[in-house]
């Protein structure tokens, strides 16, 4: 099937089998390998991207379902060398270790802060319930998002 998706601001047109998930499409067909696959069945959140502004698990969206939509992946967060405040905050607060869950965490954090610019610790933790991190114990991820919220207000 022919699909057209605006990915990180660029219109991409591709002929693709319907069974290909958005995550697979991004990684294998567009070489956007920042979107990671940890479980492939919407359990771990590593593949989170935004689809028309909302965080989704791209392993459980077919690429054909995203036809005509706008997708932002982790590669689309920084403006050139200038990282997004959420990315900066993760670096500042050691919100990542192995880095594998990180893109999904950052993309989910973007959704959390979009809907709730002043989240409490509890709201952040609740917001991250769809994302596993096995390295950090979440401590510094929560701190990073708290810090990002402050920076984004400023």
């Amino acid at each position: 099937m022919n699909i057209s998706i605006t990915i990180n601001g660029k219109l991409v047109t591709h002929d693709i089998e319907p069974r290909i998930s958005l995550s697979h499409f991004l990684r294998e067909h567009l070489d956007l390998t920042g979107t990671h696959i940890g479980c492939d069945t919407s359990g771990c959140g590593a593949c989170t991207v935004t689809l028309d502004g909302q965080a989704v698990k791209s392993c459980t969206v077919l690429a054909v379902q995203a036809d005509g939509s706008e997708v932002t992946t982790i590669e689309g967060m920084a403006q050139g060398d200038q990282m997004h405040p959420i990315q900066e905050a993760f670096r500042e607060h050691h919100g990542l270790q192995c880095g594998f869950c990180t893109p999904g965490m950052v993309m989910t954090a973007a959704d959390i802060l979009k809907n709730n610019p002043n989240p409490t610790e509890e709201e952040i933790r609740h917001g991250l319930e769809g994302n596993f991190c096995r390295c950090t114990g979440y401590h510094n991820i929560v701190k990073s998002i708290q810090h990002a919220a402050e920076q984004m207000k400023a």
């Binding site: 979107t35 990671h36 590669e75 990282m83 670096r91 880095g99 893109p103 950052v106």
Partner: peptide, 17 residues
């Protein structure tokens, strides 16, 4: 601060897959 972080945060890590 970790020097590894920039690549991971930008989705530019190089994992085997």
């Amino acid at each position: 601060k970790r020097r590894e972080d920039a690549r991971f945060l930008k989705g530019a890590g190089r994992y085997t897959d």
